[in-house]
Amino acid sequence: MIVKVVDLYFSYGQNEVLNGISFNMEKPILLGVIGSNGSGKTTLLRNISGYLKPNRGSVFLFDRNVVDIPRKERARLIGYVPQDIVYDFDFTAYEIVMMGRLPHLGRFQAERKIDREVVERSMLITDVWHLRDKPLRKLSGGERQRVYIARALSQEAKILLMDEPVAHLDIKYQLEILSVIRGLVERGIAVIIVLHDVNLASIYCDEIIVLKDGTILAKGKPEEVITEGVIREAFSIDVRVINPEDGLNRPLVIPNFVRKT
């Protein structure tokens, strides 16, 4: 079992965000998490990564309780790409990705040959190797995002958590990044990804979790989960779900909008 979440509760002070979440991830798949703002998506990721400690319930990574795994070892198991990436500094893309090797290095240890090899490989996978000497500031949004994904890769983690990695990007970069992520899943990395766009989630993810008010409203394959009923309840909107007959068989959500003429 890669990830096992058991009856997870979490609150920020009085504000209860997660109210009893349970699910399993057995194989390395691309698992999407969707839901309205404030439904607990980011908080769920932060509990899985061990950044936040649950009030009740547990998260197990490879059958070990995440709170029992030392921080540095945890960073070798889990890579995290945060929602808002910072870039107002002069570090180059290469230097950023090399930071992903921190969990593998002692305090007094210089970077080894293996570290440079892993960094190069990670940057080649996300196609940013040619940008290695550029300061992050000078890169486009999509390139920055790919640099941060490469950093998470260079941690050599088995699990990647991504919090809306395509939120601020245009459609070209969104598809580009999601293809990169699909490629990682084919390489045997388990990815849990928070997505805003229900249709992208439907097209790219193997399975989807729909959150509402800190509980799981639905979980399963896209064609099981993306239904008019579920989407209406999760987002409080009126939509139609269509199923393009293209062999892919992934349901798409379109707004129920009638143009008055």
Partner: peptide, 10 residues
């Protein structure tokens, strides 16, 4: 590069 990211780097 961000406190949350640093936390996730161990």
């Amino acid at each position: 590069t961000g406190e949350e990211s640093a936390e996730h780097l161990g």
